[in-house]
Amino acid sequence: MRCNKCGGRPVYFQRYSGQKFCETHFKDYFEYKFRRTIKKYRMLERDEKIAVALSGGKDSITALYLLNKIGERMGISLYAIAVDEGIKGYREKTLKNAEKFCKKYNIPLHILSFREYFGKTLDEMQRESMGCYNCGVLRRRLLNDKSRELGASKLATGHNLDDEVQTIMMNYIRGDLERLIRLHKSVDHEKFVKRIKPLSELPEKEVAVYATLQGFNAPLEECPYSANSFREDIKKIIYFLENENPGIKYSILRGYQKLQPYLENYSLREIMNCKICGNPSSSEMCKACQLEMYM
């Protein structure tokens, strides 16, 4: 049981390919795959301003670290944006990690809080049955607005392969073609900052291995509200399938990509301007403004 490249002590066994990697060759592989994903989907251009959504967890820290590494050669300016939803005992730790990381690599960090922008913390909202979906709506609103304010042409997130595959399966099950298409077809609106997901072809376990080998020390605590979501149920099913059939997550992603040309003719709902904030919306008022009305 040795590294397939050099015969060294393996730290990771990639079951879907049968390859074992030592520390050095795993890092090389991971960084190559990161760069290849960026190139494949043409995520970056020279001299761009890129905002990075930073939670301080392993995924967003890894994405920021590698964008910073690649970006230097491409003249890219990076800005990290963190959202403090106000989740006691959870977010403080990840935000502390985010601050420490940005200080070390000299990356400007902007922290926006739910309390400051919406008048309440997520803990307070949860008492009114807020739910994961609505938290995501508000978080995306802050990230989009701040990215635009900073003049960023794109907003990078730490979404990994597992996140992508979970979203695909959730939308298949719900029959939500609109959201399924929006996964690969960005909203075209002057107030919408295009998203890029440079980790989207890397499994979450590989991101965790990379982050551990790099010593990022990202906190492992889970969001206390995530356990009850539909996504959590889907996760369990996908991990069961992956364990029984290594590589199934890639199969789900490739299957979705094969479907994309057939979804081209589907007429998406018209994108309107929210009558309150002017952000893109599928109805007269965007979801974030609707939520704000009930707070």
Partner: peptide, 24 residues
């Protein structure tokens, strides 16, 4: 030390199981 799951264990080994999957 980080290792692969195929490694054979010895008596008195110390094993740390680290959650790799985040929530939220």
């Amino acid at each position: 030390k980080l290792c692969i799951e195929e490694e054979v264990l010895n008596d008195r080994d110390s094993v740390e199981i680290i959650p790799a999957i985040s929530g939220g």
